[in-house]
Design a protein around this nucleic acid. Structure first.
Lengths: 213, 213
DNA sequence: TCCTGTGAACAACTTCACAGCG
DNA sequence: CGCTGTGAAGTTGTTCACAGGA
């Protein structure tokens, strides 16, 4: 299994490829649990809902991982993708906003390896003090202290829209580098931080458009 | 003799455009609430986190909506996008899986117009009978009856992976045309139905990759 | 002046088709 | 034979740059 040097290729890797690698990983882990020692691209394609040639193309950006005529050794491919994504050690994550959506996402990520939720915060006193999924929900005022100590790399935001700017600024200040927000609103994004959005309503309306075509 | 190859465009309108229209809609409604009668592409761009030229490009697929030198009349643009997306009347939606994620998404969509949640179902007896956000959670065995009566167009799935095939087949059978699933697993997708996935973990791992570049 | 609308260029992404190997 | 890996072709998506109008 040969791995190419990435230094010159960094910019040539499509973002869409990275997103899918993560999905492959999830499906490969399920395959491994099922006892599949080897997984072929046609099989993985069915499990991940992408085309088989796309899987092969995605992998060639990083090297040659397969056995011709057979497929990929499940364990090795999992290890290779973990390596590529840089998730060999767990990602430290904090949550801001512990309403129903925040809590649901906490529970969701708890079921997936690679994530270590080291803190959950809310501005609402009602939520605070409570323990959820083994994580104590604290007032947002305590966030800087925890962040300084634990050095989380990423945050998830699920708060009302009007608090978004304030929260993003706070997270940038304490050294968070990436934010996934379920809240969409006008924000000036500080330097050195990446802010991505998940827009569930947009997915729903997009789907509705498609079924009407 | 050289013949120029004609490339017939299958999809005149990019799928990415449709997804964004939905996002524009949400931002335009906020602008309207703020009292902005007119919104320009540079302003909307900031609010939606896309480039201004992309907004203009997206809109030209459907016509000319703007006033040169000014922008777009907020109300008119909202109406136009609603028309394009076909969401002038509310979309009837049912939920399968009312654990924490299902409930969170119910609450999330409740805050957005265009969606009318007409039923929520779960296989787990514990969840049943309960009322959540004004919607009674029923056992999945009652789904066909409700679907026949109410004719929902779309469904949201948030269940454990091993029940996915069964659920998708059931939904197809009762006439659902589009499904948004938070559960990823190998599924044979029935004809005449579109099954899309939301993969939160993939978004997180993608973001992690980006912050490490 | 400022913004819209748009041809043309550019960039990103996906599929095709097949050589080559186990 | 079945699958991988990949050049080439095809498709989709985004930005540039600017004419033209309010």
């Amino acid at each position: 299994m040969k791995v190419k040097t990435l230094t010159l290729k960094k910019n040539l890797i499509p973002e869409a490829t990275i997103r899918r690698l993560s999905t492959y990983l999830r499906c490969l882990r399920i395959s491994l649990e099922k006892g599949d020692d080897i997984v072929s691209s046609p099989l993985l394609a069915k499990r991940c809902h992408v085309s088989e040639s796309l899987i092969r193309r995605d992998l060639t950006y990083f090297g040659e991982f397969g056995i011709k005529g057979k497929g990929y050794k499940t364990k090795e491919l999992i290890a290779a993708i973990e390596q590529i994504l840089g998730i060999h050690s767990p990602i430290k994550v904090i949550f801001v906003g512990c309403g129903s959506l925040g809590r649901a996402v906490i529970r969701h990520l708890k079921n997936i390896p690679y994530f270590n939720i080291i803190g959950a915060f809310d501005k609402n006193a009602e939520q605070c003090g409570e323990e959820f999924e083994g994580i104590k929900i604290q007032h947002t005022s305590r966030l800087p202290e925890v962040a300084m100590r634990e050095k989380p790399q990423m945050a998830v935001i699920a708060i009302p829209p009007d608090g978004l700017q304030e929260t993003v600024d706070l997270l940038a200040k304490v050294g968070i580098k990436g934010i996934l927000s379920f809240t969409l609103s006008q924000v000036k994004v500080p330097e050195n931080i990446i802010l991505n959005f998940v827009d569930i309503a947009a997915e729903m309306e997009f789907l509705f458009y498609k079924i009407n075509q």
